[in-house]
Computed example of a mutant assay.
Amino acid sequence: MIRGDREEHAVLCSKDKTYDMKIADTSNTLLFIPGCETPEQLGADKPTSNIVHLQIAGVAKNFWELRRCRPKLKKLKKLLMESPYEGPDTEQEQTSANSKYATEDLLDQVQASEEEIMHQLETLKACQIEGYWRILDFDYEMKLLNHVTQLIYTESWSFNRVPLSVCLQELGPLEPENMIEHILMSYGRKYTDEGDTYFEMKEEKICRGIAQMLLNNAVKFSLSEFQEVWQQSVPEGMITGLDQLKGLALADYSSKPETISLLNIEDLPEENQERFNTLFKIREKWTEADIVPYIQDLCSEKQTTGALLTKYARSSMQNGIKVYNSRRPIS
């Protein structure tokens, strides 16, 4: 399928890959001849010595060259954020389906293959509600997660063995059952044991979600204070660590006191140059450890973050540490 709106550069999508399309010239003129058969197609039983007169239907001196490219998935979140799901009570007030998208709508509007779109929907923790793909409103998502973690604490369950049936039974009166199962899927791994369904809850995902909730409410947060509040906010037994926040939050060790703020990779531009411009506007100089989580997704199949930094940034030494700044002036 060729996909793209009028103002977008067209891309070609297979079932699982996306390609940029570029016209390339060829020195060998291509002739289009309907009904033309080669000797191999004619077979041994048909004579090949006869001259057959055929009409040339068209001539081509160029062709489309395909180059594998990253899927353009930013639009997917933008479309889904038009109508985030805030729970059954709020949903009854919103009757319009104009800003809701089924799989066919997303395939029609997003420049990516079906497999890439489905993978991104999973990354965005989207779910299907009445045939439409929806992203949960973040406050509602945290409310559901809190219900689940509270139940785990009350029942003294292991985070590795959370029974689905009991969760549905206990939390069903509070929230729709499909939402309870969805939040378990989003923050855990589903498995079956002796015919019963369980979930292994993922520490990193839960800690990351709670950190985002805390950082959403502050422009900047004292790093030490944040780490203390964060550890107190996660379920008992879970250990927080800044490694869990790669691509979500940025710590500033040069300020006094040290601070941390939300910087979600999902909100950054998709194109390489725009991404680097945005990052260098946020911070003039970056260490490799800080910038890599924010450019890793820009790498193509055979490209490394090192190659991207060489192309878009200039390195220098600052207090014995290698830092990167923009190759071009940032207005």
Results as ranks from 00 to 15, higher is better:
Met317Asn: 11
Ser224Pro: 06
Val234Arg: 06
Lys285Thr: 02
Gln303Gly: 12
Phe221Gly: 01
Asn160Tyr: 04
Asp108Met: 14
Gly247Trp: 00
Leu215Gln: 02
Pro173Tyr: 01
Tyr153Ala: 14
Ile129Val: 15
Lys72Asp: 04
Glu274Asn: 13
Thr240Tyr: 02
Asp89Asn: 09
Tyr85Thr: 13
Ile265His: 03
Ser222Asn: 13
Met213Asn: 08
Trp286Ile: 04
Thr90Trp: 09
Trp286Pro: 15
Tyr294Leu: 13
Glu8Thr: 10
Asp89Ser: 10
Asp297His: 15
Asn216Cys: 06
Gln109Thr: 13
Pro176Asn: 09
Gln227Tyr: 04
Gly43Lys: 12
Val166Cys: 09
Ile117Gly: 12
Trp230His: 06
Arg3Ser: 06
Asp252Ile: 08
Gln109Glu: 10
Leu308Asp: 13
Ile260Ser: 01
Lys72His: 13
Leu66Tyr: 14
Gly58Asn: 00
Asp89Trp: 02
Lys220Thr: 12
Ala60Asn: 00
Arg6Phe: 07
Ala307Lys: 12
Tyr153Gln: 15
Gln169Lys: 11
Ala57Pro: 02
Asn178Ser: 09
Ala112Arg: 09
Arg6Met: 09
Asn62Gly: 06
Lys322Ile: 10
Ala126Glu: 10
Leu168Thr: 11
Lys190Glu: 13
Glu271Ala: 15
Thr48Glu: 11
Arg3Ala: 05
Gln128Lys: 14
Ala289Trp: 01
Tyr140His: 07
Gln92Asp: 11
Glu288Gln: 12
Leu298Gln: 04
Met238Ala: 00
Lys75Trp: 02
Ser300Asn: 08
Leu279Val: 05
Glu40Gln: 14
Glu82Gly: 08
Thr103Met: 13
Leu80Ile: 04
Thr154Cys: 08
Gln41His: 08
Glu40Trp: 13
Thr197Gly: 07
Gly241His: 15
Met118Asp: 07
Asn28Leu: 10
Val52Asp: 02
Glu200Asp: 13
Ser113Cys: 02
Ile260Cys: 05
Gln273His: 15
Leu79Ala: 06
Gln318Asp: 15
Leu168Gln: 14
Asp139Pro: 00
Lys77Val: 01
Ser96Ala: 13
Gln41Asn: 09
Val110Pro: 00
Glu141Gly: 01
